[in-house]
Write a protein that binds this DNA or RNA. Structure first.
Lengths: 227, 227
DNA sequence: AATAAATGATAGTATTCCTATCTTTGTTGA
DNA sequence: TCAACAAAGATAGGAATACTATCATTTATT
């Protein structure tokens, strides 16, 4: 497996392609570390510039603002998820097994293959859990959605919806179940760690991802196996 | 029904009780309008002060920062929700009907009783949908959680979990299902309006709340009626 | 070797997010 | 009724954020 994954990260997300230069890659790599460390609110281009020994102005040449940078990171994540999903589904024809692969993909601690990438997928996972909804929960969402910047997320959602549909063609809400599954898995992991009373893993008997996995599996199959 | 609802809005959320003064009520009332209008990111105390003909410094005497103000608003909402829930559950003993009341409460466009309150519940509803998760998706969540500032949300969640448990005592995840239900209902409404491809209400054939209600009901009963 | 592109260095502006201080107004209760 | 106290207004200001602009320098391209 090569590093070369041809992701269609929408060009409207960035000003200058960060994949095209060393500095660009540094920006993305260190932004993941810094957003993880500080949280998105406290993260600034100035701090990032300091971290990589560059300047604020230079980072602004790559991304309009920090929101776009987050969007870029998440786009990358969504594309990678879809890629991994397709890769793992190869040769799996059993429809229940296909659904299990979806569940495993969404709940596993880190989505494998971390060796050959130049940034930390575990940190990325944490960012997805804690920050991803901030990318669409904004006033300008409809405006920026016109530029197709959420296409990668929609594609992933559509792919999962397809597998749901294969499993139970009479189920009416494959897309909504797909997004609910994705988002609820993030939430439950977050709650397990930070607000455990909102879950049934109160005293953290098992790990956040184990608990979430069990809950999500139970929910998914009950919804889909019900007549 | 009187205005007097004795809510236990945690004192650690505010510096000076906004319920105690006219100005305090103005702050809360207009902050709801302004957060709705601008979105939480663009909302500032300066703009709010201008709106109510007061000053920034004065608002800081009530709330430490805008995050606390949002927390206060949501606390009020969660308390109100729990109050409404208990009120509606009176005299309802049929366990399926009790669950229907939960669903209706969470998905109805505005939670009734808007006349006697001095702020707009419809706007509040929009804020809950678009901004509520920002209140906990922060780096300091564990820190501020120690002050019990999320108690109202946990109580609401626990109450719904109780009803879920009554309906199906063998179901293992009443709390997680409760939060998933609440959060997923917000999400689906948001997606219906802003990113409809993430739902199965693509061309908005029915209203966001009608669609969400149908989806949530289907999900809830399938999860709980499954053997 | 000439030229263009990318980056660095620096500066500056408007706004945000506060904190401090001083004055005025309104309330209470001795 | 007057003292004193709390709330609010007015104003100032500082550190940080979120940019934009300009010009010099380095690096790659042809």
């Amino acid at each position: 497996m090569e590093y070369q994954l041809s992701f269609s990260v929408n060009k409207k997300i960035y000003l200058r392609d960060p994949e095209g230069t060393e500095l660009g890659k540094e920006i993305v790599k260190h932004s993941i570390e810094l957003i993880y460390k500080l949280g998105f609110e406290q993260f600034t281009f100035k701090k990032l510039a300091l971290e990589i020994g560059s300047t604020e102005a230079t980072i602004y040449r790559y991304f309009e603002n920090k929101h776009r940078l987050l969007l870029y990171i998440l786009n990358w994540y969504w594309c990678y998820m879809e890629y991994l999903l397709m890769y793992r589904l190869q040769n799996i024809s059993d429809i229940k097994a296909r659904l299990e692969i979806v569940l495993d993909l969404l709940t596993s601690e880190l989505p494998e293959g971390s060796g050959h990438l130049d940034f930390n997928l575990q940190l990325l996972n944490h960012i997805v859990i804690a920050e991803s909804s901030k990318v669409y929960l904004i006033k300008e969402v409809s405006e920026i959605n016109k530029n197709e910047v959420f296409k990668a997320y929609k594609d992933l959602c559509a792919k999962i919806a397809e597998i749901i549909h294969e499993f139970n063609p009479s189920y009416q809400y494959p897309h909504s179940l797909s997004t609910t599954l994705i988002e609820c898995i993030h939430q439950q992991q977050f709650f397990c760690i930070n607000l455990p009373r909102l879950t049934d893993n109160l005293h953290q008997r098992i790990s956040a991802s184990k608990f979430t996995s069990a809950f999500a599996r139970d929910l998914l199959f009950k919804v889909l196996q019900n007549p």
